[in-house]
Amino acid sequence: MADFTTSTHRANWIFTPQDLKEKYKDANKRAKQALEKYGATRMEVDIDGSFSYAEPQNDAKDNADKHSRPKALKIEEEQLLRAFYEFKIQDVCDAFKFPRKIQATALIYFKRFYLEWSVMEHHPKNIMLTCIYAACKAEENHVSAEELGKGIEQDHQMILNNEMLVLQSLGFDLIVYAPYRALEGFVSDLEESYDAKLGQSETIKSLHESAKAEVDKIMRTDAPLLYPPGQLALAALRRACEVHKLIDFERYLQNMFSRQHPAHATSELNLALNVIDMLINKLETPTSKDVKHIDRKLKSCLDPSSHDKSKKRKHRSKESSTEMQDML
């Protein structure tokens, strides 16, 4: 439980970079095939609990010759869109003043969900909100769907409709280990070993703050699917130390190792930290402008008939998606 070594987090949700690549590729491929076969990629939950692609209207199907057929998203486009909505998760959580733990849990749910599905199958905007909602429940900070929906001017029924899908896709593995707590541990450890000498608890505090900001960034990379929370925390701490130049991080690490793992060298760990570092450096924060065309493409994949119908039939949801655009 509180033991990461025996957790579902470690057993089921830590991958190799190769694993991730395969999963993203598979999901993308599956959605592409559905698009070719059915002319749309949106998934529905049937009454018996099975999932199926929404059947497009006959006319849409008939007209779906090679020219008018929507184009599937590329793997990179899916990635960019996920990155966009992951940033949104932090945005929304900040707006609600949720604790960082909830934010991290929601982000990890979101990431795990899209290892199972393509964004073309389930719109990330909906999934993002449902992940936040589920994270609140799991972290005992219950916020009603209505309240959540209201706060961001979204239909709360949509959040509820997707809840079971999200829980199921996560395999009900809902306990998530975020790096913030590990970071807290390292920082108090640092404080104990350095504070006496430095006499600067204020500086340690600001070091902690910048490390937290680094964790915030890490949470938007693939790193949480690749490394355990303790290593994510150390990577964040190392970056913060580089800026603050207060503490010799290498020495601290050596120190800690000689205390706790005398048999091991730090080289292996340093390799992991370097990879995490690289992932942070590569982190993109796309703006709504950056993803606008992808989102348009996505809309036609999900629901090719929506273009001509949206004005009449989907007035309401159209409206709310405009609001969403504004919010974004």
């Binding site: 509180a2 033991d3 990461f4 070594t5 470690r10 830590i14 991958f15 190799t16 694993d19 280990y177 707590r181 590990a182 807290e184 541990g185 390292f186 920082v187 108090s188 450890d189 104990e192 690749l226 490394y227 355990p228 929370p229 303790g230 290593q231 925390a233 150390l234 706790q260 793992h261 091991h264 292996e268 760990l269 992991a272």
Partner: peptide, 20 residues
């Protein structure tokens, strides 16, 4: 895969080290 032999995370993660 990808977890080094020393299980740092489990200790720093929760409970284990609990340096504070």
């Amino acid at each position: 895969p990808g977890i080094p032999a020393y299980n740092l995370a489990s200790q720093a993660g929760m409970g284990g080290v609990n340096p504070g």
